[in-house]
Write a protein that binds this DNA or RNA. Sequence first.
DNA 1: ACGACCTTCACACGCTTCTGATAAGGTTGG
DNA 2: CCAACCTTATCAGAAGCGTGTGAAGGTCGT
Lengths: 110, 110
Amino acid sequence: MHELLTVGDAAVESGWSARMLRYLEEHRLVVPRRTRAGYRLYGLPELNRLRSLRDLRAHFGVELAELAFARRLRREPDLRQAVDAWLAAGDDARSWIEWEQRKHERLLAA
Amino acid sequence: MHELLTVGDAAVESGWSARMLRYLEEHRLVVPRRTRAGYRLYGLPELNRLRSLRDLRAHFGVELAELAFARRLRREPDLRQAVDAWLAAGDDARSWIEWEQRKHERLLAA
DNA sequence: ACGACCTTCACACGCTTCTGATAAGGTTGG
DNA sequence: CCAACCTTATCAGAAGCGTGTGAAGGTCGT
């Protein structure tokens, strides 16, 4: 038997406030279905999603905006590529090709 | 001849303000070397990094915090996995495994 | 040794994010 | 039909981000 909870019960069950459940829907992070009258209905998948979202925030300190950005990354390949390239130039290049050149620059700077 | 610019010149050259260059360093997005006296020194790699960072923001509207988060993603595998799992449950699962089950739930809700 | 840079620190402002509260009204079940 | 829920909309406030500006002091080149 599938439990379908209205927003208040889902709030209790998930550990969020009802206010935040509406907020999360507004930002399309967890979007419940509706009854014909417009009541939100949360099923098991939504509850799991809410709980793991809560864990992500608690455990890793992830902001909602950051999650939304991660979602952008997997949907916009050119963005992803640009970001990856930018980051790669930071922690790869710095490590050894540049290192040689820096050794030289450091002499000039000293 | 490698140009090594102090913060004011690097600001002019890169299109950021000196203030922002210090801010970007503080958030470890572009970290220059220092002279013994503590002056920041920007070389070609840093200037390129600054310019492409500028482009990333202008072209894709990327926030600095989001970039920092993307960096976390590639350095913390368990975070990455958690985020990926969460996102996957949203745009894959929603599309078809869940879809069947929703059809059923929708009947109950109506 | 002086002017033009640089350093750190801190205040402040406008904007956005997250969160709660409250108001005015619709739905539902006993 | 009434209590207890739900809806949307709005105001409010704490916290953070992106910037500028200014103070108090150190460094550098001529």
